[in-house]
Structures are given as structure tokens and as C-alpha cells.
Write a protein that binds this DNA or RNA. Structure first.
Length: 925
RNA sequence: GCGGAUGUGGUGAAAUUGGUAGACACGCCAGACUUAGGAUCUGGUGCCGAGAGGUGUGCGGGUUCGAGUCCCUCCAUCCGCACCA
């Protein structure tokens, strides 16, 4: 009987669905386990073989845990708001909801083909109103909260308002941007507009004018993590800095807790480092410098207060608000010109221009807080408006950028380090003894740091301070295909839409473009198109892509709840995600935002954990192997081995990899049929009449014509083969190029496994006592498999199955007990074939996934002898079989008597003999 | 520049605590069966060497009876961040 994988897989896909085999409910009699995949954005291209890699791994683990007796939550859904569907809508006029629905259907079909054990009754879609209702609701909670520093947590804003009413904000310890100080009577006298203006500076979700990344090509603002190398992540368009009124999230309030939490979760060091780096904590001090002949104080942040006596000038960001006020009359023109030129540059230009030092002198001077010395104030674009205070005290002897600036503009470079040469470059190490620095002389950096901060604080001109690179996250987008805000405007003030009016659904519009006044697309919606119309107008912005993905793992716990985002008891039962598998590209986006929202929801008492993902694994990317052909100046396509030494005039073209034969030659007729430009292509073939191509590793993508889809492979080899092959490819975390060639090995293995049951053409197992050899093979495999799964080593797991089946085939094992146990072990990896075999072994069972996982018994592996490798000076020379009951001394005596030992000793007396019991013998000559 | 990771056969890789380097598989070579099949089975396969043997985990050094594994220097590749004061 043949292994008819297509029929078997289709049969079980249907039966699992009918029997709801993977449906899960809360069950307090079992320990729970939550295995989560990063849900996909359903793009039009469908899945390629790289996408399911993580899903296969998580599916194997989820099935394994289920067999081990856990109640496993393993859901899937779609991150279905996003830019591609909207851009398709702009081009075609088709509503993004339709595109999205079609893409989801295709994704579902492909996912089903792979035989995943998702509980599809729990599916969520972020673009579904029943889902984004609760995204809007969470936004409301954040709008109605502020960060209380005394309690060190997000707290309902009502508490803050009540404090304002009693005592104003004079004693309030909170994360805010409010410059005003007021007492209770002043607060009470404020108009509602004034009150709201103040509250906006405290709210966790707030509306404020701030520096944002504006992408003119996309017509929207972007968060920092949506910008890669100075251009937009989507589309690669330039991005500029612009001051705009936007919704933001006060994630900065959580900077310290986001750092601290990393110590409590099981993520890779690389990923934790990336987040630490992004949060960018630095310790130092704020210092105020008085501007000569004015009342202004320029505040700077420095990580090196110990070098304060090395300050020889100051530099402000060109956008610094003081620039206009302090600028001397004779410098106005130069400064204005510089400001203008800096504003014209995009962030990318500024970055590309690091070596080009620019700046302008304002003509103003600051006074050194300790020496009273006059310090020239410059502006320069190496100082960023959005970091620290937008101003620096320049210490050229200790900072290379200050050094370069000083050198370029011929400013003094006083040396405050004893015995350090600064004639060529700044000395940035913190190990120099401080000199020429009044009360800091003779101190090392650490002591000087403490003393300097103390002196700064004593003078009342600053204080020890911690600064973070992390900035508040811009939360509004000028796009159509996103969550509408539950916000309207009354007297120009933002107001929340009442809970019973949620969700505010996405209104239909006539076009998916901004209006002529530059308003976002939602401004096009007719009044009646909105699900509710309040105040003067609704909010026209939509939420960013990361809004829905910041909490979806919570909704899976109770996806159909109409009363709340998830039932508290269910939240308490499922708790944290135990295992999260996904790509590392979300390190500073989704993974940070999800942690932030989790902490906020925890603070506000909605959930009982403050870290969402206890363990996280990043699967590596599967790369494609592009096929590159060479077209010569004569327009003929040359075989790789027919290329001249001088390839001048040749160009490389990528061709569809499906057009290749196994020997990497092109199917010429297929190429001609592929694209019109090749219809009459001429070739320069090699001696065998073939045109060979070069293979090169690229990202797997349609544009490189190197995509391999799971569909074709499932058709040809079956999902079980594909699942095991993807795992067999290498360690999960590693990136690796896809090569379909090796798949035959895994497919052959499954056939071999199948043959164990079908020796005589039909299904047959014997019920005799298993042989000791078979038991040993089995238990060796149980141990290896379990160890491998616990450390997520799926590739070695597949090898172990191969070894096991090879050994059982050799032993001609057809024993029921052995084969049943093996089948359970293999079921997580190859669910269809194992389920089919199980239905033969246990016809009354509904599914193999209700079976019990085999238990390892070490007694079957017990050995009485051991083949000692005998090495001389660490080099293995021969093996000696000895009884394991022998003592170390006895082993040594036996070994030394062996003729092989005498041969290798060459008459010498060993200096030393090392015996490790049951491991090795080493003789030192 | 800073931070992280990785370097092992022709290829994907294994070696979990310092203890037989290359498991398992692809590919390749030889053979069997067979009225071509992309089927199955057997044997071989790190490199040098006829063999004995030598040699071998990016380079160089160190610790150790013993190093792919630990330490130091350097090199290469990949990823992240980057005028962050």
C-alpha cells in the first residue's frame, strides 16, 4: 500500500475541522500553555515557504504540549489594517475591506493546507469593527490616564483632576510637559479649554504639537520605528521633520520599567539589547547656563558633568526656541540663513552629511556657572532638537564631535585631562585624571562626576538626571485604512465618544486620498457616513498599524465578548503568552508597544501581568535563491560557462526560478513563453547545449522572481514532508537560503516510516513483546526528542526520527507497542500521516492528540560495557570494550596491558594516564 | 563609530556540562533490480597519501591530560543603532 499523502492529508484536514479537534476552552483541571505566533498582515502576494517556518515550529510545540497534558491556547488571526491595501484602493478605487477579505481567504487556504492546529473559532481581525471597538476602548482608557510618579504607575486622570482641585499642580509628581504652575483656585478659575490644555500635558494618550517625521510622498506622519535609514520603511520615501499637532502615546513614562522588565523575560540577548539600545538610557546631569545680558537660562543635558571646566563653547540645535532671542544683530542674517538651510535638509540628508561640519555663531555668550567665563553660543545641526534639551555644552577635549566643531571653526580646545594628549583627537575614555578644573582637580572621572553634580545641585543650576533616547510615540496617521479614533471635537477640544457608541466605524469615502485642504481621507466622509456624529466634527486621523497588534494576544482569550475586551476570569486563566514566535524585525516596534500597552493595562487593573510574552523566539528568515542570467552586448543570453573573461557590456537579468531544470540550466521554451521580451531570445549554449545560470541569495520576493510557495510543495510531497523539511533545514533562529533539493530526503524518510507498517503490502503490526533492541531505540528517541523540543531544537529532532526509523527498519521491527509510541512522538511534526496510522492502530480513538506522550525509561538504555576511546596526547587511536563495572584503576590496568597501547607507547613510559569513567582514556607521553 | 550574532566537508548542518569532530540529510561515486523511474535497495564519500600514517572546526596565540567548545589579538560576513551630548 502506497503512502498516498494527498488523500490522507485532505481527509484529516476535513475531519479535524468537522470534529473541532483543536477547539479549546478554559479547563482548570489542566495546566495551561499559551503558544502564540505573530499574526500576519494578509498581503496580496500570499504566503511563500518562509512565512510558515515559525508557524510550523509553534504548531509542533503546541501539539507537543497538548500531548503532554497541557491545555494549549494556540490561536491565529490577521493584522488586517495597513498600507498596501490602502494603496491598492487608491489605484483601483476598490474598498480596502474587499481586498483584505480576499487576501485573508487566500491566507486561510494556505494555512489550512499546512495542517496547523489553530483554534479558528478564536480568529481575530484587527480591521473588524467588533475587534477595533476594543482598540478604541483601550485608547479611551489611556486618554483618561496619566503617569503618577509617586505610585510609579498609570493612574486614572480623575485622581489628578481631584488633586488639581484641592491643591493645584504644585506638589504633583507625574510625567508631564506642563510648564505652568498653579494652585487650586487658579485651576478652578481656568476655562474648560484651559483645563483641557493642561490635562493634555499629562494624559497617556494626548494631542500635542511636536516634532514628527513627516513623509510627503505617503502624506502621513510616521513613528521612529517606521523609518529605516532615514526613509520610510514602506516605499522608501524621504522623511522630514515637521512640527505638527498629533496624537501621541506617553511611552517615555515607561522607559525605566520597559528596561527593568527585560530582566524578567526569556528573550534573546540580541533582542533585549536592541530594545535597551532603542530606549537609550544615559545618566548625567542637567546644567543651566545663563545667557549674558539676558534673563535666559540655557539648559543642557550632559553625561559628563565631570568635564564642565572643559566647556569652551555651546551649541544649540538650529530649531532651539532661544535662537531668535539671543542672536546678535550683526549675526542675524547668517543665523537665519543657516536655520533655513538646516530646515530644508531631510533627516536623511543630515545623517548622510555627518562629516560635513556646519554651524553659525549667534554672537551671544553664556556665562560659565563656576568660572563666570564668557562662552560663545553657536548653532549647529549636529545638535538635535528632539534629544535632551536641544542644546549642548561643548567639551572639545572630551568629545570628538565637539572637537571637530572646534577645529573647524577655530574655537579653543582647553585640556582638562592630566597626561592625555589631545593634539590629534578628543580623549573620550572615562579613565583620565581631571586637571585645570578648580575643585575637581586630581579626581578620577567617577569621583569628579559625583562632586560636580553635588556642586551643580548646591548652586541650584541643575541636578543629576537620567535621559532616554526613547521618544513618545506618534499615534495618529493621515490614512484611511486604520482604526478611527473614538474622539470628536467640541469647542475645538477633543472629547471621547461614549462607550455605548463604540465602535466608531470607518465611514465610506469617495476617494482614499487627502482632501484638497490637506485633511486626512476621513474628512471626505459625508456626515451620515459616520456611525455617530458628535460635536463640530469627528477626529479625521486614524490609528497607526501598531494599535491593533499591541493587544491582540489578549483578545484571543475571549474573542467574542461583547461586554468587555476579555473576561477577567479568562484573562486570569490564560495569563501571559508562554511562547511567542516571530520575526526580529518587530524588535523596536510591535514588541515594544505591546509591552507598553500591557503595562498600562496592568497599572489600570485590567490584567494581572505586566509583561506580555514570557518567552520569545525569533525565527530566522528564509532567503530565496535568485537565478541570474547574463545578456551580452549582442543581446544574446550566455550560459554561465560561456562567458568571456571580460564581461564588459554584459548585464545581469533575474529570471523566474520555476524556469530552471535541476542542473540549473534554463528551460529555453519556457523562458520564451514567460515574458514577451524573451519571445525571440537567442542563446549562447555550452557544449551540452545548455544555458546555465548563476544562483544568488536574496530576500524571497516576487520582484526577484525567486519565490517558492508552500502550495506547490504540499501538492508534490505533502504538508507533513514540507513541515518536517522546513524544520530539518537548520536551527529555527538561523537565516538560511531555501533549497528544495533536500526535500526528497525527508519525503523518503516518511515513506520509510510508512513502510514499517506496510511490510507486506497492507497495514500490519504484531502484538508480541518488543525486543530489547527496539525498546532501546525507542527510549533513546523519546529522550532525545523531549530534550530537543524543550530547547526548541527542531532540526535535530527530525534527525532523531530518521535515526530511529533507520534502526527499526534494520531490526525489521513491526511491533505494535514500539510503533505506537513512535507515532505519538512524531505526531506533532507530521500530524496527518501519524493521525492516519493512529486510526489504524487505535480505530476507536477520535484523534492521536488525545493520546498520552511516551515516558522515557532509562533502564532500557542501561549498558554493561563501554567502548572506551583510547587517546594518546589527546588523539584518539583505538577503542577498547570494557565492562562498566570496572573501577577507574582497573580500567587503567586493562588499557595499559592492551597490545594497541604498547604499540602506541613505542617503549616509552606514560607520564600520566587519565581515565574518565564511561567517557574516555587519555595517555600522556 | 557603538552594540549583537555567526564563521565546521562540495551543500544544509550535528557535536546539550571542555572528553571519539562531521551525526542526520542533500549531492557525488560504484553497484543491484529494472522493457528509463524524479522508484527502491547495497556500499563508499573531510582533505593529503598506494599504504602506514599525517592533517583538519576563519587566522594567530594562550589555559588544559584533552579545546569546535574557555581566554586574548586579529580577519571576514550578517543584523541592529547611529551626529543621542
Amino acid at each position: 500500500m502506497d503512502y498516498t499523502f494527498n488523500a490522507i492529508e485532505a481527509k484529516w484536514r476535513q475531519l479535524w475541522q468537522e470534529r473541532k479537534t483543536y477547539q479549546v476552552t478554559e479547563d482548570t483541571t489542566k495546566p495551561k500553555f499559551y503558544v502564540l505566533d505573530m499574526f500576519p498582515y494578509p498581503s496580496g502576494a500570499g504566503l511563500h515557504v518562509g512565512h510558515p517556518l515559525g508557524y510550523i515550529a509553534s504548531d509542533i510545540f503546541a501539539r507537543y504540549k497538548r500531548l503532554k497534558g497541557f491545555n494549549v491556547l494556540h490561536p491565529m488571526g490577521y493584522d488586517s489594517f495597513g498600507l498596501p491595501a490602502e494603496q491598492y484602493a487608491i489605484q483601483t478605487g476598490q474598498h480596502p475591506a474587499i481586498t483584505t477579505k480576499e487576501n485573508i481567504a487566500r491566507y486561510r487556504q494556505q494555512l489550512d493546507l499546512m495542517g496547523f492546529s489553530f483554534d479558528w473559532d478564536r480568529e481575530v481581525r484587527t480591521s473588524d469593527p467588533s475587534y477595533y471597538k476594543w482598540t478604541q476602548w483601550i485608547f479611551k482608557q489611556l486618554f483618561d490616564a496619566y503617569y503618577d510618579l509617586t505610585l510609579d504607575k498609570a493612574t486614572p486622570i480623575a485622581a489628578l483632576i481631584s488633586t488639581f482641585e484641592k491643591e493645584g499642580n504644585l506638589n504633583v509628581q507625574a510625567v508631564h510637559e506642563c510648564q505652568q504652575h498653579f494652585d487650586a483656585p487658579t485651576w478652578l478659575a481656568f476655562s474648560s479649554a484651559e483645563k483641557e490644555a493642561v490635562l493634555q500635558q499629562y494624559r497617556m494618550a494626548y494631542l500635542a504639537e511636536s516634532w514628527v517625521n513627516w513623509c510627503p510622498a505617503l502624506g502621513t506622519v510616521l513613528a521612529n520605528d517606521e523609518i529605516v535609514n532615514g526613509v520610510s520603511e514602506r516605499g522608501g520615501h524621504p522623511v522630514e521633520q515637521k512640527r505638527m499637532m498629533q496624537w501621541s502615546m506617553r511611552i517615555k513614562a515607561y522607559a525605566e520599567r520597559l528596561l527593568e522588565g527585560l530582566d524578567r523575560i526569556d528573550w534573546t540577548d540580541a533582542l533585549k539589547e536592541q530594545q535597551r539600545n532603542w530606549i537609550g538610557k544615559s545618566k548625567g546631569s542637567s546644567v543651566q547656563f545663563a545667557v549674558k545680558d539676558t534673563d535666559l537660562q540655557i539648559e543642557v543635558f550632559t553625561t559628563r558633568p565631570d568635564t564642565i571646566f572643559g566647556v569652551s563653547f555651546m551649541v544649540l540645535a538650529p530649531e532651539h526656541p532661544f535662537v531668535a532671542q539671543i542672536c546678535a544683530a550683526n549675526q542675524k542674517e547668517e543665523v537665519a540663513a543657516y536655520q533655513q538651510q538646516a530646515a530644508l535638509k531631510t533627516e536623511r540628508d543630515r545623517q548622510a552629511d555627518v562629516k560635513n561640519i556646519t554651524g553659525a555663531f549667534t554672537g551671544a555668550y553664556a556665562l560659565h556657572p563656576f568660572t563666570g567665563q564668557e562662552i560663545p553660543i553657536w548653532i549647529g545641526d549636529y545638535v538635535l532638537a528632539s534629544y535632551g534639551t536641544g542644546a549642548v555644552m561643548a567639551v572639545p577635549c572630551g568629545d570628538q564631535r565637539d572637537y571637530d566643531f572646534a577645529t573647524h571653526f577655530n574655537l579653543p580646545i582647553p585640556n582638562i585631562f592630566a597626561d592625555k594628549d589631545i593634539s590629534e583627537a578628543a580623549y573620550a575614555e572615562k579613565d583620565a585624571v581631571i586637571a585645570n578644573s578648580d575643585f575637581l582637580n586630581g579626581l578620577d572621572a567617577k569621583a569628579a562626576m559625583e562632586k560636580a553634580i553635588a556642586a551643580i545641585e548646591a548652586k541650584g543650576i541643575g541636578q543629576g538626571k537620567t535621559n532616554y533616547r526613547l521618544r513618545d510615540a506618534v499615534f495618529s496617521r493621515q490614512r484611511y485604512w486604520g482604526e478611527p479614533f473614538p474622539v470628536y471635537y467640541q469647542d475645538g477640544l477633543p472629547q471621547l465618544v461614549a462607550d455605548d457608541l463604540l465602535p466608531v466605524t470607518l465611514p465610506d469615502v469617495d476617494a482614499y486620498l487627502p482632501t484638497e485642504d490637506g485633511e486626512p481621507p476621513l474628512a471626505r466622509a459625508a456626515k451620515e457616513a459616520w456611525s455617530c456624529q458628535l460635536g463640530e466634527r469627528m477626529e479625521y486621523n486614524t490609528m497607526p498599524g501598531w494599535a491593533g497588534s499591541s493587544w491582540y494576544f489578549l483578545r484571543y482569550m475571549d474573542p467574542h465578548n461583547q461586554e468587555t475586551f476579555a473576561d477577567p476570569q479568562k484573562l486570569a486563566y490564560w495569563n501571559q503568552v508562554d511562547l511567542y514566535i516571530g520575526g526580529s524585525e518587530h524588535a523596536t516596534g510591535h514588541l515594544l508597544y505591546a509591552r507598553f500597552w500591557t503595562k498600562a493595562l496592568y497599572d489600570l487593573g485590567f490584567i494581572h501581568f505586566d509583561e506580555p510574552f514570557a518567552k520569545l523566539i525569533n525565527q530566522g528568515m528564509i532567503l530565496g535563491k535568485s537565478a541570474i542570467a547574463y545578456v551580452g552586448p549582442d543581446q544574446k543570453m550566455y550560459s554561465l560557462d560561456m562567458l568571456p573573461a571580460n564581461k564588459e557590456g554584459f548585464r545581469e537579468v533575474r529570471i523566474l526560478i520555476d524556469l530552471l531544470n535541476d542542473d540549473e540550466s534554463i528551460q529555453l521554451d519556457a523562458l520564451k513563453a514567460w515574458q514577451p521580451q524573451y519571445a525571440n531570445q537567442e542563446f549562447v549554449c555550452n557544449a551540452e547545449g545548455k544555458v546555465l545560470v548563476k544562483r544568488e541569495v536574496d530576500k524571497m520576493s516576487k520582484r526577484w522572481y525567486n519565490v517558492v510557495t508552500p502550495d506547490d510543495l504540499c501538492e508534490k510531497y505533502g504538508a507533513d514532508t514540507l513541515r518536517m523539511y522546513e524544520m530539518f533545514l537548520g536551527p529555527l533562529e538561523q537565516s538560511k537560503p531555501w533549497d528544495t533539493k533536500g526535500i526528497t530526503g525527508v519525503h523518503g524518510f516518511l515513506k520509510k516510516y510508512w513502510r514499517l507498517f506496510h511490510l507486506n503490502g497492507q497495514f500490519e503490526v504484531n502484538d508480541a513483546q518488543p525486543s530489547p533492541a527496539a525498546l532501546k531505540t525507542l527510549h533513546k528517541t523519546i529522550k532525545k526528542l523531549t530534550d530537543d523540543l524543550e530547547r526548541f531544537s527542531f532540526n535535530t529532532g527530525v534527525s532523531s526520527f530518521m535515526i530511529c526509523v533507520n534502526e527499526l527498519t534494520e531490526q525489521k521491527c513491526n511491533n505494535r507497542h514500539i510503533l505506537e509510541q513512535l507515532t505519538i512522538l512524531m505526531a506533532p511534526y507530521a500530524p496527518h500521516i501519524c493521525e492516519e496510522i493512529w486510526s489504524q492502530l487505535q480505530p476507536e480513538a477520535s484523534s492521536i492528540f488525545t493520546a498520552e506522550y511516551p515516558v522515557f525509561d532509562p533502564s532500557y538504555l542501561a549498558e554493561s560495557t563501554f567502548d572506551y576511546p583510547v587517546s594518546f596526547n589527546g588523539k584518539m587511536r583505538y577503542k577498547a570494550t570494557l565492562d562498566l563495572s570496572l573501577s577507574i584503576e582497573e580500567v587503567q590496568a586493562h588499557i595499559l596491558e592492551k597490545p594497541e597501547t604498547q604499540k602506541w607507547l613505542e617503549g616509552k613510559t606514560p607520564k600520566k594516564v587519565i581515565v574518565v569513567h564511561g567517557k574516555i582514556v587519555n595517555i600522556v607521553l
